[in-house]
């Protein structure tokens, strides 16, 4: 049996499953953390660890292959918990709900750990699904990978000094960027360039924010890592002012080119070591290459959308992932 953790709207998961079926796999289960069709049934510690999907029991001991694609915590017994009043005291009630939530979280963590260890083939990692950007940059440098000068700043004075020392900077979220919307508007945070001219709009003290020296970019590289192979793509966006800092700001008239790329072997070796140190056997890495052909590592996303590499480069990564899971 192949067990896949994902979320219901993830198109990549659907594509990989289509390949699994085409390659003759009949026994697989997709667990979407955002759909309430999974329930806990029982674990005996010996040979039976049963959850159910739509009432059909699944024994996780039978998992031969596991893919943690993405997704968070499954809320077990959600509907039942709603019916029960835990305490008349509102404060106690809140704390008890917190306790149950922790119990649920720990059980979830264990299920994913259990399946990952139990399965001879395991791809992706739940406990490493959210990396700390700053920590990963430190590690990368330890492996000899170049990174742009990185600072966390919370005063205009210091920001101003860094701008003088380094020239233009970029800023982005330390964790995940903003992606929120209501009925009338959608908001999305990009990587933005910061210049001295921006200082007038910045208050004297602000929340500690991540800044990096802006690399004089020749092009951007997106790398998908699967087991021991790299599938790289170059993004040519320099001709566009609009996409110069963040290629996701799409220009309809002059779309960026997304082309197959061969990462130099030396960069691949160091990056492989970084993935290993992070205990990840898959993920997406971002680089920028400057005018002197230096490769600057930006970040690793363990649950990145590799279809955005797969389609333009004609790599059939969804099929490669399916083949990995079958072996």
């Amino acid at each position: 049996m192949i067990v896949i953790n994902s979320i219901s709207k993830d198109h990549t998961t659907t594509e990989v499953i289509r390949w699994l079926i085409a390659l003759g796999v009949k026994d697989f289960v997709r667990i979407d953390s955002d759909v309430e069709d999974i329930e806990f049934v029982g674990y005996n510690g010996i040979d039976s660890f049963i959850i159910s999907k739509n009432g059909i029991p699944i024994n996780l001991f039978e998992s031969k292959s596991y893919w943690y694609r993405r997704g968070g915590v499954i809320s077990f017994s959600k509907s039942k918990l709603k019916e029960i009043k835990l305490s008349q005291d509102i404060n106690l009630e809140k704390k008890l709900i917190g306790n149950i939530s922790s119990e649920n979280q720990a059980l979830n963590d264990y299920i994913k750990q259990f399946v990952a260890h139990r399965s001879p083939v395991s791809l992706g990692s739940y406990h490493n699904s959210s990396l700390n950007k700053l920590h990963v940059l430190d590690l990368a440098r330890q492996f000899g990978i170049k990174t742009p000068g990185t600072f966390v700043i919370n005063t205009k004075k210091e920001l101003s000094r860094k701008l003088v020392e380094n020239g233009p900077l970029i800023t982005k979220a330390i964790s995940e960027g903003v992606s929120i919307y209501n009925v009338n508007h959608s908001y999305y945070s990009y990587t933005e360039e910061i210049n001295e001219s921006d200082l007038v709009n910045i208050s004297d003290v602000f929340f500690p924010s991540l800044f990096q020296k802006k690399v004089d970019k020749k092009f951007e590289i997106r790398v998908f890592f699967l087991s021991d192979r790299f599938y790289s793509m170059v993004i040519l966006s320099q001709r566009n002012k609009q996409t110069e800092v963040d290629f996701r700001k799409y220009d309809e008239r002059k779309p960026n080119r997304f082309l197959p790329f061969r990462l130099p072997a030396e960069v691949e070796l160091k990056l492989a070591a970084l993935f290993k140190a992070l205990d990840l056997n898959t993920g997406s890495a971002d680089f920028v290459v400057d005018k002197n052909n230096e490769y600057f590592f930006l970040e690793i996303n363990p649950v990145g959308q590799f279809s955005m590499v797969s389609y333009p480069c004609n790599y059939y990564l969804e099929k490669e992932v399916a083949k990995f899971l079958i072996n």
Partner: peptide, 15 residues
């Protein structure tokens, strides 16, 4: 030139 391979002339689909 080595850094920029061509697209593989290949088409497959699972269905």
């Amino acid at each position: 030139l080595e850094l920029f391979p061509e697209l593989e002339k290949r088409w497959e689909s699972p269905e």
